[in-house]
Amino acid sequence: MRPPKPPRRTTASPRLTGEGEVRPDAPLGKPAREPASRDLPARDLPENRAARVSRPVRDQKPESTPPASDTPGAPARASVAKRRRERVRKDPPRPPVAPNRKKSSDPYPLSDRIEIRRKARRRALLIRLGVACGAVAALASVVWLLFFSTVFAITAENITLSISDPADIVDDTQVASILAATEGTPVLRIRAGDIESQIADIPEVESVTVESSFPHGITATIVAREPVACVGEGEACEGVAADATRLRVGDELRASLPKVSMDLDSERAAEQLQDLLDAIAALPQDVRARVQAASINPSGLIEFSLDSATIKWGTSTENEAKARIITVLLTQPATTYDVTVPGAPVTY
């Protein structure tokens, strides 16, 4: 029968002194504390480190040349070069700045500042010039569209003619031809005054108003003269208005107008004719229709001949008062109605 094995005693690894001897006074299981230089194992001693580093590791190929920073005794510039290579590898080199390009922090020479300001002023001038040219072109387009194109021209269906002519003496065809000449003209180029003067030259027109309406219309409003008498004898009798303007009247209208009898060759013919026409124009319409003839003597006394009576008017004064009185007197039967003195009318 074998004897039992003695118990295993744990002891600390023997420590080497500075001379490589084992300390016999070191307690079991706990190494004696010595300075840091003496605590290094035998394999970490300087004389053994080079041999350990040079010993190749199993299954690993030795490097041809270790990095300069890992080699013992490498100079400090090798480490600096390594850091530089790593920095260059991380941040690729930037292209060099052109010599004519300045950094924001670099001061510009005076000539460069002047050139920069000159270019800025030139650029601003070109921008303003371009804006001005664009505005002029836009304005020219608008002007051409409104005043020279046919987009807003007058059309025949938008020409309106309104005539107030109870006696029907205005020639509609003549007026329409004047208005038709404006067809195709831009409405903003219409000169209403020129058209009004052309229509006003027609003797039968007393007043005219022409108005253009955007975008295609034009309107003419005409008031005709009223014939009040017929001056002359027989077929040569011409219709006249209250202002002595000669009018073209038809045969039917001529026959219904009062016939004026006077000396047209006298020196006062024009003045006396106007006095006579003023008195006729003052008569009410129903009384004027009953007047067959009107005369004025050289002294300026006016007389009207009715179908069966005579009206002694006197001079061409207070015509409105005489017209009111004669309207009342004609309601009474008489052969002569004298209103020479409006305040004392006489019938007999």
Rank of each mutant, 00 (worst) to 15 (best):
T185V: 15
S305A: 13
R23V: 13
V142M: 10
E86N: 01
G134N: 00
D251K: 13
D194M: 02
P186H: 09
E34I: 06
S212A: 15
T221R: 14
A200P: 00
P92N: 01
P215L: 13
D168I: 04
I326R: 04
D286S: 11
P107Y: 04
I154M: 03
V291K: 02
S305G: 03
R58L: 15
V57Y: 09
S213K: 12
Q274H: 08
E21N: 11
R43V: 15
A255Q: 13
A176D: 06
Q292Y: 01
E226M: 11
A229G: 10
R89H: 03
L28E: 12
V223I: 14
T173P: 00
K102H: 12
T327L: 07
V339M: 06
R87T: 02
V223H: 11
F214G: 09
V187S: 05
A334P: 01
P4R: 14
A180E: 06
V175S: 02
S212H: 12
D194I: 07
N319Q: 11
A51G: 07
P215A: 15
L129V: 05
T310E: 05
S197R: 14
I222T: 05
P35E: 13
A192C: 05
C237I: 06
G193D: 14
R49S: 10
S213M: 08
R189I: 06
A224F: 09
S105L: 08
K61A: 15
A281C: 03
S261F: 04
L283S: 04
G134I: 08
G239L: 10
F214D: 08
A220D: 03
S64D: 10
P96N: 01
T11M: 08
V175M: 03
E86I: 07
R121F: 10
E211V: 15
E318P: 00
P284H: 10
P345R: 08
L139S: 11
T317L: 10
I202R: 02
L276E: 04
Q272Y: 09
I222Y: 07
P93L: 13
T155Q: 11
K119H: 06
E204F: 05
I199H: 02
P215R: 13
